[in-house]
């Protein structure tokens, strides 16, 4: 299969999953928001006052995150996907993780919330966010590319 076709089919499935969340829960499918929301009720007891502690993990967001993690492991086997990327150092990975986590919550969304759903909602705010994070990411890859030096 052509990689562009494979990418588009994967994208359509991502879009359908977002449609399911919209139809079922009336919410956008933003992974950064869902992830923070999944763990929220545990810390803050419960907003509705019925469930607290670990029982509060029985919420649709936590189930979505479990599906994402388990599904990721499962479909990596099913589709026999492997990464061509060599392992990176812990320092870089921790810095990158902190920036992604802090930045997506501060900026109210990531590739899914602002990208997949925000653009689908035709939100100008999300379009601006997408342009900013895409530009910052491309600039970062360019700078690290220059530092690594050309060749090829």
């Amino acid at each position: 299969m052509h990689p562009f076709l494979q990418a588009a089919i994967g994208g359509i499935v991502i879009g359908l999953a977002s449609w399911l969340v919209l139809a079922a829960f009336g919410r956008v499918t933003g992974i950064s928001g869902i992830t923070t929301g999944a763990l929220q009720p545990v810390a803050s007891k419960s907003d509705s006052g019925q469930r607290g502690g670990l029982a509060a993990l029985a919420n649709w967001r936590f189930a979505f995150v479990v599906g994402l993690i388990v599904g990721g492991a499962w479909f990596t086997q099913v589709f026999a996907v492997s990464s061509a990327m060599p392992s990176r150092g812990p320092g870089l990975l921790i810095l990158a993780g902190l920036l992604v986590g802090y930045g997506t919550v501060r900026g109210s969304g990531c590739t899914s919330g602002h990208g997949v759903c925000g653009l689908g909602r035709r939100s100008a705010r999300s379009l601006i966010a997408v342009v900013v994070f895409m530009a910052a990411a491309m600039l970062t890859v360019t700078v690290t590319g220059f530092m690594a030096g050309g060749a090829a």
Partner: peptide, 19 residues
């Protein structure tokens, strides 16, 4: 929105992973 997006973008470019 702008600064958070920019931070996310830098982290995404460094690690190659979004959430």
């Amino acid at each position: 929105l702008i600064s958070g997006g920019a931070m996310f973008g830098v982290g995404w470019g460094l690690g190659g992973f979004c959430p």
